[in-house]
């Protein structure tokens, strides 16, 4: 497997021990974070809607390897994984979900609306499909200002039935703007299976019909996702053309904390869990003797500590005074 170099963020060669371990670490970090969030939801520390990323970690982690710090990210409401993989501090994400003003959005956004300026993380959009036109616009600005960078837009299979998906595909292709559309096809739009929402279930065909270059990849295989992302990202920046990447994946947990999962068989979930991207990579690394049980234990410890620290940070956080309720409706004059 070959990997293109030349980006500030790019790790060492894909097959280096360190990089493989880092991928595993990042996926595991998301998994453990999400599991803890579920607990904290039951403890009533986190409220509102909470959509967990378990099972889909390979998509965010794999794609993020190919992005530069200058690139922008537009995500969905199931975006903890993207936010963590992009480098937004776990402390501020946790504090956000606790509703504290130390959160990345001062507790104004919550789980579905994580934002960060430094990492060019443009949310956290809870209107399915609503982020796509935004991504086209961010890329349009880059084109107009002649900046060689891309906008990575995550979307789900559900979004592809929305009009905004089709409008955005057409605009991206018509204007030739550098967007990497990453479809996380977890095969359910909330509780409605792909075959019940799409007349044509071959999703890349929809991108193809707009003349957009595309690829489909196993979204349970982080190395496969990274490989294709590493291949296409520099081309998108260079040519300024959009690209559509479908990652087939599966959501191990319920859609949100209010979902009784009446729409799918337990056996199906179990079957997909056999293909867990974290277990698969762990297995591979063990077989290749690239990781030991002691290494794994060390990684788990590191993550455990970080999560505990994030919870302590969030607990210690403060509530924004109610007197400030109507701030951030309009920009405040800079002092």
């Amino acid at each position: 497997m070959k990997k293109k170099h030349g980006t500030a963020q790019a790790p060492a060669a894909v097959n280096s021990h360190q990089h493989l371990r880092d991928l595993l670490y990042q996926m595991l970090r998301i998994r453990r974070f999400e599991d803890k969030c579920a607990e904290l939801y039951s403890d009533m520390k986190i409220r509102g809607f909470l959509h967990l990323y378990n099972g889909e970690e390979a998509v965010a982690v794999g794609v993020m390897q190919a992005l530069n710090p200058e690139d922008a990210i537009v995500a969905t409401y199931r975006e903890h994984g993207q936010a963590l993989a992009r480098g937004i501090s776990m402390n501020t994400i946790m504090a956000e979900m606790f509703g504290k003003q130390e959160g990345c959005c001062r507790g104004r956004g919550g789980s579905m609306h994580l934002f960060n300026k430094e990492h060019r993380f443009y949310g956290g959009n809870a209107i399915v499909g609503g982020g796509l036109p935004l991504a086209v616009g961010l890329a349009l600005a880059d084109k107009k200002l002649d900046r060689k960078r891309l906008t990575c837009c995550f979307l789900g299979d559900g979004a592809m039935a929305e009009g905004e998906f089709h409008e955005s595909m057409n605009l991206a292709a018509l204007w030739q703007v550098p967007v990497l559309f990453v479809c996380e096809n977890n095969q359910y739009a909330m509780g409605t299976a792909l075959k019940y929402s799409h007349a044509v279930t071959n999703l890349v065909q929809k991108a193809a019909s707009y003349g957009i270059d595309h690829a489909a990849v196993d979204g349970m295989d982080v190395l496969a996702v990274e490989e294709v992302a590493q291949k296409v990202a520099p081309a998108i920046r260079e040519t300024g053309k959009p690209f559509f990447l479908e990652c087939t994946t599966y959501r191990f947990r319920a859609h949100s904390m209010f979902d009784a999962e009446l729409y799918r068989e337990k056996a199906e979930v179990e079957q997909w869990k056999q293909r867990c991207p974290i277990a698969t990579l762990t297995q591979q690394l063990k077989e290749q003797e690239k990781i030991s049980d002691a290494d794994l234990e060390a990684i788990e410890q590191l993550i455990h500590q970080e999560i505990n620290h994030a919870i302590a940070f969030a607990e210690a956080g403060t509530w924004e005074p109610v007197e400030e309720l109507t701030r951030f409706v309009y920009s405040e004059p800079s002092i």
Binding site: L132, P133, G137, K144, E167, L171
Partner: peptide, 21 residues
Amino acid sequence: DTPLCESGFTGAGIGAALGGM
């Protein structure tokens, strides 16, 4: 000139504004 897609080009306007235009 934009295609007939009010949501698409209005959203693109938001994105372009966020991108510095």
